[in-house]
Structures are given as C-alpha cells and as structure tokens.
Design a protein around this nucleic acid. Structure first.
Length: 290
DNA sequence: GGAAGAAGCGCTTTCGAGGC
DNA sequence: GCCTCGAAAGCGCTTCTTCC
C-alpha cells in the first residue's frame, strides 16, 4: 500500500539474494479480473481452470475456449510438449458498457462492475452464453516441465508466450530498483483512467528466473513478486445499526449495518467491527456519519 | 413456472498468534 | 521486530433447491 512497503520488499529481495546492486523487475498493470491456468499438450489447449485455492479450481475449459484472445493451438516451432500459461480473464470497459446496455434494453439485470461480469460469465453452464460475453485474456506467466526450454528472464518468457499467440499487457515495462518501480507506479496511476480495462494496482516481479527460484515461496505467495495497490476510494455513509453475528467457530463479531453506499464498484452495506480497539479510539456510534 | 433463499465460488482485507 | 499463516468477514455472481 505504501512506498515504504515497496522499498522494504526490495530490501528483503536483495538481502535474501545476498546482493547490493539494484534488482531488475518487470512491472505490469494488475488487471481486475479472474486468474486462470491453461494447460497445453503438444501445442493444443487441453484444460483450463480457475485459480481456486491454489491447488484445485473449477474446470472452465469449455467456456475459456470461447474467448477469442485464448489460442486453442499454439503457433511456432519452439512450443514445449507440456506448457502451463497463467493469466487474467477480464472484461474491457467498453465491452462491459455495451453488455449492460443490451441487458438493460431487454429488461434483464445488469452487472455491477466488469470484474463480477467476467467472473459470472466464466461460470456459465452454457458456453454459448459465455461466447456472447466480451471477455479477453492477458498472459502473465508461463511454466514448463523442462525449464531449459524457456528464456532465463520473466520478460523474455512473456515475449515467447506472445509469439505463441497470447496477448501480453502492452503497458509492461522493466524497472531497476525500488525507485524506478515507484516511477512506474506513478506513471501507471496517471494513465489509469485512460486504459480500456480496469486495474487496481501494479505488479512487480523479479525479472531473472534464477533469482525467482532462489527467493522461492512462502505459503502460496512468491517472495519474488509483489502488488502495489492504488489508494482505496472513500465515501461517507451513516451507521444505521450494529448487530452481532456468530461465525463458523462460534466467534461473535459485531457488524455495522450501514446506509448502502456505492464505492469502488461495489455497494457497501455492512462493515465488520472486529477491530474494537480502533472503534473505541474513533468513538463512533449508531447514527454517526463515517 | 417463477420467486426467493441457500450454497458455493472468486477476490479481497484485516487481525492475531506463533516462530525466528 | 519481522515474517508467516490461518481465520474471519465483505461483496457479487451463478446454480440449485424449496416454496407458492
């Protein structure tokens, strides 16, 4: 969330790698969509799944095949026998607006935001419905069983994926060190409103794959990548009531019932009050504007 | 047959406990 | 003090079940 957190991340990367020189990163917009994983055997798309919990996701093969920017057959003579390409499926802003216009004309329910429209479209039972939704996919990583078949940087790896027929993000760029990453963040934030798709931040990945490997993972999160989010949007509303709800483990949590307010593409009507110390510090009450 | 509610999924944020 | 991890909760969507 903050510049200092990004600098801390860069420092941890250098500490773990045992180097003092600046690390090269690949910076690209964090698309607001759903993460998907596509498997290809001998160049042909075999299965597609959502990210799920990191181990298993939903099978969306039939629906993913309807997205024009997903190649069903990889082109080129350097395609490994087994390839996994990961990317983001999203709905561009203009496609979202056209879809909602069509739905409204037919008197049907419209979507609240492009991310949810994309998620809903991919989970359709009938792939013919998905085929009519303006979805696109952008690749951001690739994995193969024999790593010698890929270039030794994230950047070149994505260029290779592009040559096979995938889209990669045109805003992608390289940056050396935390300060250049922060410059890339500022530039992207300036461009944000003019982009044809929604983004909620920027992702920085260590460019060299040998360094990525050396850094490894913690739990499901890589130590060689981080996302910096754009500042949260804020709106004022009123606390109408406070209720107590019992969680799955029996934990009782107070929840504020708010006058619904539309912010950041969603309507917020409840807010957890589990952080009681902060609530006491702010000294808020039912009826207050917060 | 249609409406309403529940369940499950995806993405996200925040906190507290435990380990180093 | 920092890092890691799991729990809990929020919103929106689709699908399935139940009820009228």
């Amino acid at each position: 969330f903050s510049e200092d957190e990004l600098r801390d991340f860069d420092r941890r990367v250098k500490d773990r790698l045992g180097i003092t020189e600046d690390v090269e990163y690949v910076c690209e917009p964090k698309l607001d969509g759903l993460a998907v994983s596509l498997h290809y055997e001998n160049g042909a798309l075999t299965t597609a799944a959502t990210r799920g919990d990191g181990y298993s996701g939903e099978d969306i093969t039939a629906n993913i095949r309807t997205i024009p920017s997903v190649p069903l057959k990889l082109r080129g003579d350097d395609v490994p026998d087994l390839v996994e390409v990961r990317g983001e499926v999203y709905m561009p802003k203009d496609g979202f607006e056209q879809l909602n216009r069509r739905l409204a004309e037919r008197g049907e329910k419209t979507f609240v935001n492009p991310r949810n429209a994309a998620a809903g479209s991919l989970r359709q039972k009938k792939s013919t419905v998905t085929a009519r939704r303006p979805l696109e996919m952008c690749a951001y990583s690739v994995a193969v069983t024999d790593e010698s078949l890929l270039p030794d940087t994230q950047w070149e790896g994505l260029k290779r994926v592009q040559s096979w027929g995938f889209r990669i993000n045109p805003e992608m760029r390289k940056a050396r060190g935390a300060e250049e990453c922060l410059e890339a963040y500022s530039e992207l934030m300036d461009k944000r409103d003019g982009l044809p798709y929604e983004i909620d931040g920027i992702v920085f990945r260590v460019n060299r794959l040998d360094q990525q490997k050396a850094l490894g993972f913690v739990s499901r999160a890589p130590r060689w990548a981080i996302a910096q989010k754009f500042p949260a949007q804020e709106e004022l509303t009123v606390i109408e009531d406070v209720e107590f709800q019992v969680g799955r483990t029996g934990a009782v949590t107070p929840v504020a019932r708010l006058k619904p307010v539309f912010v950041g593409g969603v309507t917020v009507s409840n807010a957890t009050l589990h952080n009681m110390d902060e609530i006491r510090r702010l000294d808020v009450h039912i009826g207050d504007t917060v």
